[in-house]
Every structure is written in structure tokens, then in C-alpha cells.
Design a protein around this nucleic acid. Structure first.
Length: 571
DNA sequence: GCCGTTTTCGGCCCGACTGTTTTCAGTCG
């Protein structure tokens, strides 16, 4: 079982306890354990096999360690089953709607018998919600909106979660003697922020035997269909995986075809049609003759195209660029020399400045910006002016000990409702790196929100606008503001736009980056790591940058430390 | 339920907004 699945079950325990009105610290404790499990780079299964105790993990004590072991052994645990028996399963989904927490979910359950999202939707549509004490017309409207947001993405999982499923598949596939070659295609290969299912191409001579071996994967909950071309299964996590069998002769064509996107395929096929050729998953054909199909390169080349990186395959001009030989050289993870957003125990991170710095150096970075929260983010124990400056001193003393890493004294300062910043300019001016971001007062009119952002950008003290949209994928809508004006102001004021690499943020998203880039914007990548493991999210951020056609020269993280110092001195 | 100890139990995440009320509960980050 994968870490993410264990984390899901711990979260479910926390949710059910919350519904019950259990001790909030106990709830938080399960959530903390879940976060640890989710973000740790060690596989729990591996830890068991190597005889290591889960109690060595932060936020995991005797009790939770026992439950994790139980979950790994049996797929669930007694405590969870007890809690599940107490309340309707659907109430957790109801709690997932923005604006509905445990109390409201319980109230609606008790007053209206709402046990599921569907029943919530019906109750809201019928106007019954606003009749309940404590609710009104606005709550009812917000609930309908919230359900819509949820249903838009509920059938897709985050890319980062898919990565874990793929890792598990990878280990299984590596052990099968029937599988000669395999590749994950689809939106996963294109690096999309969410993934609906996995398309796995498999090269095997004996397909029947391969199918049997594939089906033996421990993570499979059910086989949906099985034939000579395709095996479809559903994993325990709910994710569907389609294995498609190919031959060596059409391998490239199949990889091309199943990587998509649909629109990209159509655009490429149109070129084949111009020549009276036919392009499908079995190859490029002139009449009955297969002209190409072994590799993707061969297929593209036969059509007079450069090979197109999967991240660009969205029919956003890449086919024309490939035809003219003008595809961009996309930024790569290897180009990244540092990270511009990270947190420590000074606010809501779980590691110290020293630990974060050591981890950054281990990754081969030349610089790491420590950007803890400012005081407005009270729940994170954000820093006031005094603490901010003292923290900067601490960062600099760590920096002085590091030979080949610049630990940048920074802050993530909140942009308040008025557009002023949460800390004094005099304070911010003493720091190496200032990112500005919005966490509160999210529901302003578009005009007010735009003015608020412009004020911050024009303040002259922020280097970077962090997670500009403030969205959480599938859960929180983006802030409403005039993106063109904001991007333009960033360009004019030399303020970088962040691509926040938190897997559920990925903010700015690719299409916004493309728009901003066309206006001349420059970017930073920030893992927004809240622990040493979190630095690893950089790779997910790179996907976004690549999908946005960004090159090395558009991204500050690719410059050397000396160039970075020069650039920051000038600005 | 975890953590860090003053090693056996107290502290842990708190401030502000929203929508509902008429003084505040619930939610959010």
C-alpha cells in the first residue's frame, strides 16, 4: 500500500473525529501524522521490511504507529471501522464543500437528514437549506457553488498522487518477465496538474501471460475488463489504469497516440491527411505501407516535424512551431540551482533553518530562500517586525557556516486587504528576498483585489508575487482580479511571478504563465516546502513551467549565485 | 494523540471574517 493511501485513511479518521466533535488536538495529531506520511520520501512498506519503527517519523507516536501497521497489514484499522459505523460515509464529502465544516455538516444531517453530496445538492436546490437555523440564502448559494467546484475535479487526482501510484506500478512492472518495455502515456506524461486515469503501454510477446502477471499487482482492487489489446483495472485508491498491449513495430505510434492530447493528435493527423496518409495508434500509413511507427521521433520526422515534448502537446501552437523547427528548449529540473520559497519552525514549517539549508545543499542547490509567514497568518505563528529581523539574523548565521549555499534571509509577507504589507518597509528592506502573497480577505470585488495586488507590486519592496491566484486545485477558487494589469505591473516593477510547486497549488498555472510571459514577465519557482521533503516538489513545478513553454532564461532559479546577487543588488 | 520534558502531564493554533444574528458560532488558513 502506498503512503498516500495510508495518509488518506489517517485523514479519514481525523475527519470522522471532527464530525464527532472530538478533542481538537487529537484531530490535529492525526492530520499531522497524515501530512508526515504523505510527504515523507521513505515508503512505509520499505520501513517495515527494513525493520524500522514508524515512531521515528515526526508526529507519529505509539498509537498512530500501531494504526499504520494495522492499515498496512489489513487495509484498514479497527478505530477507523468503528468511526465509519457511527456516521454516514457521505458526511465527509459534505464537509469537503467550501464553507461547510463538521458543525454545519452535522446540523444539516440532523435537521434535514442530509447524508451525501447528492442530498446536499437537492436540499440546496429545493431551498431547504436556508430554512435551517444558522443558514440563509447566501449560505445556500455558496453551498451550490461549492458543490460545483468539487464536481469539476473530483474524478481526477493530483499529479503528485499519481506519481506515487506510478512508483508502485514501476516496482511491480520491473519484476515481470513478460513485460519487455513499458511507458506511461496520457495526461500523466504531459505533466498535467491532475490526472484522470493512467494509460500504460506495455510491450509483451505473450499478452495472456502478461495480463495475468499484471493483474497480480497488490494494489489492484478490481479488474474492469480484459482482452487481447487492453486490460483495465481499478486500483484500491480508485484510480483506473488501462494497460494497452503494443508491438515493437507500432510502439512509437502507440506512445504518441495515447499521450495525446486529443487536440494535439488531431492537429498532427491533419498533417498526415494533407499527404493522403493515415495516422493512428498502429503507425503512419501510406495505403497499406507502414511508413513509421517504431519510435515517436520516427513518426514526427516522417511528418516533417521536430519531436515535440509531451508537455507542449495541447494544440497551443506546438505543431506549427515543430514544423518550422522553432520549438523552445524547455527549462529542465537540472537547470534549477535554488529555491525561492521555504518555511521553517519559525512559522509553520517542521524543520529548522539549518536542516532546510542542509537539505538544499544535498540537492545541489546554490541558494535557498527562507520565507516564513508574517504575523497576519496567526495560525502559523507568523513573524512580526521584531521576530522577522531576529529570524533574519539566525538565517544569516546559518548562512555564514554554509560554504557553497546562500541561505537567503527572506519572508512571505501578507498583502493585507488594503494593499499594504503586513510588515514595515523598513523591515522588509533589510531582507535578501521578499515574497508577497494573499491568504486572507479573499472575497473582494475584482477592482478592489486588483488595486490591492497593484499596491503591493508597486510598493518597491517585494521581489516576487507568490501563488498569485491563491487557488487550491479542486477546493478553492482563484482570487478574482485583472490578471493582465497585474502581470503588466509585475513586468514594469521588476517583480517576479512565482510558480508555486505545492502539488495542490501549482500557481501560477501553465496557461497564465504563458499569458504573463507574452507580456514579458519573469518567473521564480518555489517549492513552498514546509519540511525538508517538501523541497522535492520542485519537479512538479517544473512541469508547469515546461507546459508554459518557459525556457531557462525566463526563470530566476537557473542563474548562478553570483548573478543572483548582482541582480538583487541592482533591483 | 504527540511532544518534551521540570519523566508523567500540560501544552498544543489563533485572529478575523462571514453570515447569521442582535452577540456569536462556524469556518478558514
Amino acid at each position: 500500500m502506498e503512503n498516500s493511501r495510508v495518509a488518506d485513511l489517517l485523514d479519514e479518521i481525523a475527519d470522522l473525529l471532527e464530525l464527532k466533535g472530538a478533542n481538537e488536538f487529537r484531530i490535529r495529531s492525526y492530520q499531522a501524522a497524515s501530512r508526515t506520511v504523505r510527504s515523507t520520501s521513505r515508503r512505509l512498506q520499505d520501513m517495515i521490511e527494513q525493520g524500522e519503527s514508524f515512531e521515528t517519523l515526526p508526529n507519529v507516536g505509539v498509537s498512530t504507529a500501531g494504526k499504520i501497521r494495522e492499515i498496512l497489514d489489513t487495509g484498514t484499522c479497527k478505530r477507523l471501522e468503528e468511526l465509519r459505523a457511527e456516521w454516514p460515509q457521505g458526511l465527509i464529502q459534505v464537509m469537503g464543500v467550501e464553507g461547510i465544516g463538521p458543525r454545519k455538516a452535522m446540523k444539516l444531517y440532523q435537521e434535514l437528514g442530509v447524508q451525501s453530496l447528492e442530498e446536499l445538492q437537492q436540499a440546496a436546490a429545493a431551498g431547504r437549506i436556508q430554512e435551517v437555523e444558522g443558514f440563509g440564502e447566501k449560505s445556500q448559494r455558496q453551498i451550490l457553488r461549492g458543490i460545483q467546484t468539487l464536481s469539476g475535479t473530483s474524478d481526477r487526482i493530483l499529479y503528485s498522487e499519481a506519481v506515487q501510484q506510478v512508483e508502485s506500478l514501476r516496482r511491480h512492472l520491473a519484476e515481470l518477465d513478460t513485460v519487455k518495455q513499458w511507458e506511461i502515456a496520457g495526461s500523466y506524461r504531459r505533466g498535467r496538474e491532475t490526472v484522470g486515469d493512467l494509460d500504460v503501454l506495455v510491450l509483451a510477446e505473450d499478452r495472456m501471460r502478461a495480463a495475468t502477471q499484471l493483474s497480480s499487482h497488490k494494489e489492484i482492487a478490481a479488474v474492469i475488463s480484459q482482452g487481447s489489446e487492453k486490460l483495465s483495472v481499478r486500483l484500491q485508491s480508485g484510480l483506473q489504469v488501462d494497460f494497452r498491449f503494443c508491438d515493437a513495430a507500432n510502439w512509437g505510434a502507440a506512445v504518441f497516440y495515447f499521450t495525446g492530447s486529443k487536440d494535439h493528435n488531431i492537429a498532427v493527423r491533419r498533417i498526415a491527411q494533407e499527404h493522403d496518409w493515415k495516422l493512428n495508434e498502429y503507425g503512419l500509413f501510406s495505403g497499406e505501407d507502414r511508413m513509421a511507427g517504431k519510435t515517436e521521433q520516427e513518426v514526427y520526422a516522417a511528418l516533417g516535424l521536430q519531436w515535440i515534448p509531451p508537455e507542449l502537446r495541447e494544440d497551443r501552437g506546438e505543431v506549427e512551431a515543430a514544423r518550422q523547427g522553432t520549438l523552445p528548449v524547455l527549462v529542465d529540473l537540472d537547470d534549477i540551482r535554488g529555491d525561492f520559497q521555504s518555511h521553517t519552525v519559525a512559522s509553520d514549517g517542521s524543520h529548522t533553518v539549518q536542516q532546510m539549508a542542509d537539505a538544499a545543499r544535498k540537492r545541489g542547490y546554490s541558494y535557498l530562500a527562507i520565507t516564513d509567514h508574517s504575523k497576519r497568518v496567526a495560525m502559523a505563528q507568523g513573524l512580526d517586525d521584531d521576530r522577522c529581523l531576529r529570524h533574519a539574523d539566525e538565517i544569516r548565521s546559518v548562512d555564514a557556516q554554509m560554504e557553497d549555499l546562500w541561505v537567503m534571509a527572506g519572508i512571505e509577507v501578507d498583502i493585507l486587504q488594503s494593499g499594504t504589507l503586513d510588515l514595515k518597509h523598513k523591515t522588509l528592506e533589510q531582507l535578501d528576498w521578499v515574497v508577497g502573497s494573499i491568504h486572507y480577505d479573499r472575497r473582494l470585488s475584482e477592482d478592489k483585489m486588483t488595486d490591492r495586488l497593484l499596491a503591493a507590486i508597486e510598493s518597491g519592496v517585494i521581489h516576487c508575487l507568490a501563488h498569485p491566484l491563491g487557488r487550491i486545485i479542486g477546493r478553492r477558487e482563484p482570487l478574482l482580479f485583472d490578471t493582465a494589469r497585474v502581470f503588466e505591473s509585475c513586468v514594469n516593477n521588476g517583480v517576479f511571478l512565482e510558480i508555486n510547486a505545492q502539488p495542490d497549488r501549482l500557481d501560477l498555472p501553465d496557461t497564465y504563465c504563458q499569458d504573463a510571459r507574452s507580456m514579458g514577465a519573469m518567473f521564480t519557482l518555489g517549492s513552498d516546502a514546509h519540511s525538508v521533503g517538501g523541497l522535492g516538489w520542485m519537479g512538479v513545478g517544473i512541469n508547469v513551467a515546461r507546459r508554459a513553454w518557459l525556457q531557462k532564461e525566463h526563470i530566476l532559479n537557473t542563474v548562478s549565485v553570483s548573478t543572483l546577487r548582482q541582480q538583487l543588488e541592482r533591483s
